[in-house]
């Protein structure tokens, strides 16, 4: 994916020079291994800061919400699906955007890699499918495809679903992926086991709301956890309040989540927050044949009524 860099800069230069966009939203090289920082460039002289590699897991659609400028945005498959969702939900206008599509081969799971090196990581370089990790002077080569974020491993929409430009040839989509093995494992539990499972899952939560804020779907002017009249949810470290937050956050993403993994990537204490949303994604697929953000012309199942909608739960 490194080959995309030159192409991204070339396209961006053209867009800025021709005045088609006011700014480009992309990534610049991070200051620590396995991190890049979302950034904007308004001046075509500064395009050399733009980079692309397997550490661009943050969903850039999050930076589009309610912006008024004409924007060129670098978008991998999941980002493009969230752009579609943004368009459907009137958070951005299609004609304001020039989408620079990135055919994606998956992002590195920074925690998985960090966990392999007890002495910390000084530097990582990447070349096709090879990661070279330097830790205290020792270099180790790893296969990138073994170290992808879980949502990337399970991804079947690596190519952008809408784009105006492409940073490289489309990649082959993964086939025969068992995307919901984790959900089925939880479905098989009894109610008290499920309760305990999620209790353990969120026990390290510090209520920093990184999962919510990294998510392009979470753009409410005031989130329900921040409401004070009425106060839906306590602000302390009470386990039930924390659970209420995670629980409702997930529900608000039902039928909208693209499984981009930004929430899980952002969590400072490594909670697998996708365990909440995956079930809703699976249900949407099973009940409505729906995957979010595939086309700007389709209304989401939860805001449309069809006579064939499943209704067995209504007694």
């Amino acid at each position: 994916m490194l080959g995309y860099i030159d192409k991204i800069r070339e396209i961006s230069k053209r867009l800025l020079d021709e005045g088609r966009v006011d700014m480009i939203i992309g990534f610049r090289k991070g200051t620590i291994p396995m991190m890049n920082e979302p950034c904007f460039v308004k001046n075509s002289g500064e395009l050399s800061t733009l980079v692309w590699d397997s550490n661009c897991g943050i969903n850039l659609a999050n930076y589009l919400t309610d912006r008024k400028e004409k924007i060129g945005i670098v978008a991998k498959g999941c980002d493009s699906r969230n752009i579609v969702t943004h368009i459907i939900e009137n958070k951005i206008k299609r004609e304001k955007l020039v989408i620079i599509g990135i055919p994606c081969k998956g992002m590195i799971d920074k925690r998985k890699v960090a966990g392999m090196f007890e002495n910390g990581i000084d530097d990582i370089t990447e070349e096709d499918n090879i990661l070279r990790v330097k830790s205290r002077g020792v270099e180790t080569s790893l296969k990138k495809s073994d170290l992808l974020q879980e949502n990337c491993e399970l991804c079947i929409h690596r190519n952008p679903v809408i784009y105006d430009e492409l940073a490289g040839p489309l990649v082959e989509e993964q086939k025969d992926v068992d995307r919901y093995a984790d959900v089925r494992r939880i479905e098989a539990m009894t109610a008290p086991e499920k309760w305990e499972y999620f209790k353990d899952l969120i026990s390290p939560c510090i209520r920093c709301y990184a999962c919510r804020n990294a998510c392009p779907l979470c753009y409410c002017p005031t989130c329900f956890v921040d409401e004070s009249r009425p106060q839906w949810c306590g602000k302390g470290q009470d386990e039930i309040d924390t659970r209420t937050f995670h629980f409702l956050r997930a529900y608000h993403c039902a039928g909208r989540c693209t499984d981009c993994g930004a929430c899980e990537r952002a969590c400072p204490v490594g909670i697998k927050v996708r365990q909440f949303t995956s079930k809703l994604n699976k249900d949407c697929l099973d009940m409505f044949g729906w995957e979010a953000g595939l086309s700007p012309d389709q209304r989401p199942p939860l805001d449309t009524y069809k006579p064939a909608d499943p209704g067995d739960f209504i007694k």
Binding site: E37, P38, C39, F40, I58, N62, Y63, I206, R207, C208, Y209, A210, R212, N213, A214, A266, P268
Partner: peptide
């Protein structure tokens, strides 16, 4: 430029 990427979570302060 500094604040662009920030998602306003509480990670840094907590």
């Amino acid at each position: 430029d500094v604040s662009f990427a920030c998602i306003n979570c509480g990670t840094c302060t907590y």
